[in-house]
């Protein structure tokens, strides 16, 4: 029983990072109907921004984290203004947005290699004590912090989407962009703000990932797992992305722990294919006929 509880904690910890990234995917997908493949790299750049800030003497770690989150949000906004908005305004198909995202992804990865090199960096942690021992169940303090912060941030995100006027605008654009425009919603502004939010979430994910593991140019590849999570939950659905992410984290941990690590990705990707075949809209998704 102890093993199972320990594995569940690990699964939720992994899933919480996936959830932060996956919710960013879902937000952008819900508005623009394309998979933003550069999202993982925004996550990586957020971690590097935080890392650079920690090098400044006497800089509190919490401020470095905010700089990382802010940096990622700005980069995400930059992507929207530089590439996506122009493609959208040209009336090009959504496939062009996805190709642009892939280009940005490769560019950022190479740029990180050039600027910071391929050496692995480490982010400082908030606590000196690494683990809490609760009746033989070990919970990492960094993990606990990450889970709690992720939970709070994701609840705030859901409240913004469901309870605020801005959230109403986001849902309106997601539901019917043209109608929303006719009704007076400033679509470009809404999309820009959504990119800022998605970027901030990616930045937070990058920082938590960097604290738990390392910061390196290819760390954005974790975005692929988050993308799978958002497909499982239903592309375009933020609650779905969160549930899908935690589910994926748990499945990966249970498969690694009880079946075989070698089969972990096989099972994760098989699950993705199965969901696309049986329930293309995922657990919480809506119509995906035209989704990329």
């Amino acid at each position: 029983m102890k093993i199972l509880i320990q594995q569940m904690i690990t699964g939720i910890s992994i899933g919480s990072v996936y959830a932060l990234i996956a919710s960013g995917y879902a937000l952008v997908y819900s508005l623009l109907d394309f998979s933003n493949w550069a999202h993982g790299e925004v996550c990586m750049l957020g971690a590097y921004c935080c890392f650079m800030a920690t090098l400044v003497p006497k800089m509190p770690l919490s401020v470095s984290c905010l700089i990382g989150i802010g940096g990622a949000a700005l980069i995400s906004l930059f992507n929207e203004k530089l590439a996506y908005r122009r493609i959208r305004n040209n009336g090009s198909p959504n496939m062009f947005l996805m190709i642009a995202a892939m280009g940005l992804s490769t560019t950022y990865q190479n740029l990180a290699n050039v600027i910071w090199g391929s050496k692995f960096k480490q982010l400082p942690r908030f606590f000196k004590t690494t683990t809490l021992n609760i009746n033989g169940i070990f919970v990492g303090t960094t993990d606990l912090l990450c889970i709690v912060i992720s939970l709070i941030v994701l609840v705030i995100l859901l409240l913004i989407i469901n309870q605020t006027r801005f959230g109403l605008h986001v849902r309106a654009v997601a539901c019917a962009g043209r109608t929303a425009r006719i009704m007076g919603v400033r679509i470009d502004q809404v999309i820009a703000l959504v990119f800022v939010m998605a970027g901030a979430l990616a930045g937070l994910a990058g920082i938590t990932y960097g604290m738990k593991y390392n910061v390196y140019p290819t760390m954005g590849n974790v975005g692929l797992k988050a993308f799978i999570a958002s497909v499982i939950g239903g592309l375009g659905s933020v609650p779905g992305a969160i549930v899908g992410a935690v589910l994926l984290g748990l499945i990966e941990t249970v498969v690694s722990g009880y079946i075989s690590s070698g089969l972990r990705d096989l099972i994760s990707f098989s699950l993705l294919i199965l969901i696309l075949l049986i329930r293309p809209s995922g657990l919480f998704g809506v119509d995906v006929q035209e989704k990329a």
Binding site: K2, I3, Q6, Q7, T10, G11, S13, I14, F138, Y209, K212, Y213, N214, N221, V222, E252, T253, V254, S256, G257, S260, S261, G262, R264, D265
Partner: peptide, 20 residues
């Protein structure tokens, strides 16, 4: 005896069994 793969960052699923 546990296994993992290159590219993994989290080994706790396997290490939990080793700890036991």
């Amino acid at each position: 005896q546990e296994e993992a793969q290159n590219g993994d960052n989290d080994f706790r699923a396997q290490l939990t069994k080793i700890a036991m």
